[in-house]
Amino acid sequence: MVHLITEQDIHAYVDDELTPARRRAVEAFLADRHLSLAQAVTYLRTTFDLRSLKREIYADDALRGEVEALLARRRAKTGEEGAAPLEKSRSSS
């Protein structure tokens, strides 16, 4: 079967947004294409890097403030109470 895989499918793959069938199609596509594969895994690796660097990334007060406000709004909507606020960066405290 021929699957049309777009650039956005590759991002959705990295972000675990695909249905199992679509994920398999993207993985089959990536398995045969070195360039797309390198791109997808680079994005995947960047995600891991950003998570490891969370403290440094949130040293940007404007960014941390906005993300914190958005997550608080989400918690209020879903009724989730008492979730911890984002860790404040040491370098900005």
Binding site: D15, L50, L63, V67
Partner: peptide, 11 residues
């Protein structure tokens, strides 16, 4: 872009 990447990739 930073906000959306933070929300999806980090959070």
């Amino acid at each position: 872009d930073k906000v959306v990447l933070s929300l999806v990739a980090i959070e």
